[in-house]
Amino acid sequence: MKYRSVFDIIGPVMIGPSSSHTAGAARIGRVARSLFGRQPKWAHISFYGSFAKTYKGHGTDVAIVGGLLDFDTYDERIRNSIEIAEQAGMEVSFIEEDAITDHPNTARVTIGDEQGNLELVGISIGGGKIEIIELNGFELKLSGHHPAILVVHNDRFGAIAAVSNILASHKINIGHMEVSRREKGQLALMTIEVDQNIDEEIIKQVEQLPNILQVTKIVD
Rank of each mutant, 00 (worst) to 15 (best):
A99F: 08
T106L: 09
R38T: 10
F71H: 08
G66T: 03
A85L: 09
I133C: 12
G122E: 10
N117Y: 11
G49T: 02
L118Y: 13
Q115P: 06
N80W: 00
V65P: 01
S50M: 15
G127K: 00
Y55H: 15
G126N: 01
I133A: 04
F94C: 09
V65Y: 07
V109H: 03
V62P: 03
D113H: 05
A63T: 08
D75I: 07
D113P: 08
A107H: 05
E91D: 14
D98N: 10
I132R: 10
T101S: 07
D70Q: 13
R79E: 14
H44D: 15
Y74Q: 04
I100V: 07
D72A: 15
D113R: 04
E96Q: 11
V92F: 04
W42K: 09
A107D: 06
L118I: 09
H58A: 05
V92D: 11
I130Y: 02
I130H: 04
E131W: 07
A43D: 11
F47R: 07
V65R: 04
L118E: 14
S143Q: 03
I84C: 02
Q115W: 14
E97G: 05
E134I: 08
N105Q: 02
G57A: 13
K56Y: 01
S81C: 04
G116N: 14
K41W: 05
F71N: 09
G127N: 14
I130K: 00
G122M: 11
L135Y: 15
G126R: 03
